[in-house]
């Protein structure tokens, strides 16, 4: 399909933009502490589905944008996303074969290591007293993975991105 060479890029940017909006959106203030890192979920999916198109550098760029969006230590998310995407690309063949439960455990591992990196950098900065709330997004993110996976796969199948 020669005409669709720019199509995946468009869908990638669109889904990442939606993920970023979801990341900062606050529809119900009570649910804010549970808001997972949607961007990391979208990045894991795309690096699993199209590892030959989107690599570590793309993830790093997305991370820099996320850093600016959330306004914390610059480079924090760039590092995290680059690392997560590196591991998901390395394991993408295995990830594609995994049943959903095993994929969820991989996502859980990614989310908890990313949150630990944030924990490290933030507690280096100041006398942070993190509450238990800090770790909620790890669990909600893991639970949201099947949803993100099916939604993005649906988009990919409908848009015929291979």
């Amino acid at each position: 399909m020669p005409h669709s060479s720019h199509l995946p890029v468009f869908y990638f940017i669109a889904t990442i933009a939606i993920a970023m909006i979801l990341r900062v959106m606050s529809l119900w203030p009570e649910l804010d502490p549970f808001n997972p890192d949607w961007i990391i979920l979208a990045l894991i999916y795309w690096s699993m589905a199209l590892p030959e198109r989107f690599g570590v550098f793309t993830a790093w760029t997305v991370g820099i944008l996320t850093d600016v969006l959330t306004g914390r230590l610059l480079g924090q998310y760039a590092l995290i996303y680059a690392l997560v995407v590196y591991f998901s690309i390395r394991e993408h063949r295995r990830l594609r074969q995994f049943p959903m439960l095993q994929q969820c455990s991989f996502v859980f591992f990614c989310l908890i290591s990313s949150q630990s990196i944030i924990f490290g950098t933030e507690s280096m900065q100041a006398g942070n007293r993190f509450t238990l709330e800090f770790w909620y997004p790890v669990f909600t993110g893991t639970l949201m993975w099947p949803l993100v996976f099916w939604a993005l796969r649906y988009i990919r199948v409908v848009a015929r991105i291979a």
Binding site: V24, P33, T70, Y136, P137
Partner: peptide
Amino acid sequence: LSVKLVPY
């Protein structure tokens, strides 16, 4: 603005 940048 109804925006929450960092959940915690």
